[in-house]
Amino acid sequence: MAGEATEGGGLEFHPLDQFEVHRLFGEGPIDWYTITNVTMWMAIAVVCIVLMLVIGTRKRAVVPNRMQSIAETLYGFVYTMVEDVTGKDGIKFFPYIFTLFIFILISNLLGLLPMSFTTTSHIAVTAVLAFAVFFTVTIIGFVKNGAAFLGLFWVSSAPLALRPILAVIEVISYFVRPVSHSIRLAGNLMAGHAVLKVFAGFAQVGLLVAPIAILGVVAIYALEVLVSAIQAYVFTILTCVYLKDALHPSH
């Protein structure tokens, strides 16, 4: 994914080109239904998920092979997380949370392939994910607890005088959640990929700089693999925490 060659002697970096959405076929404007690179990479993610979780487990072996073992590990990992954080009544949201987790994880990792497009580096995508969580959690909170859900903002353990102030802070923090939730994910991935691209751009500079730049690419790539997994984990566990607030709003 090296940057474009130097033109006219000067270096030209286009670290943000990789994030561009474009049509796969033909020319023209991008409508909501247009098949773009977003469509393609999301489809690839779906294919990967199907390969891993459906095809990989089709033997239903008691002693698992490699792919089934990975699928089971992911399942166990998310299942334990949901159970530990939200409690037993959170288990029925497990498919929903697992969907988010696996989509983010696979998209993040696919984004690390050279020449690929990282769907989760786009704020449009992460914002939809985050707002989906936000609205789900808010609706569940009100449906399950009724008006008692508002007790989430009324810190009953604090001194009475402080409670209104705390309530304001709690309300603000509650509504900031989807923003931080989505920008954290998109920001991490975008920054990492842009830095990778900048380092790759320096790799064409000269004999002195290129080795350092290439080492840098390797190092940052390793870091990005870590970040991909961690961001998927963070997004998921925060979803679980928000869900727990909705199911058990008392502090």
Binding site: V38, M42, V46, Y96, T99, F103, A132
Partner: peptide, 20 residues
Amino acid sequence: TFPNQIFWLVVTLLVIYFIL
């Protein structure tokens, strides 16, 4: 590009959710 991304994201998530 937002409508495009959001549309395909929703499709993708629904597909994944149903398969899973």
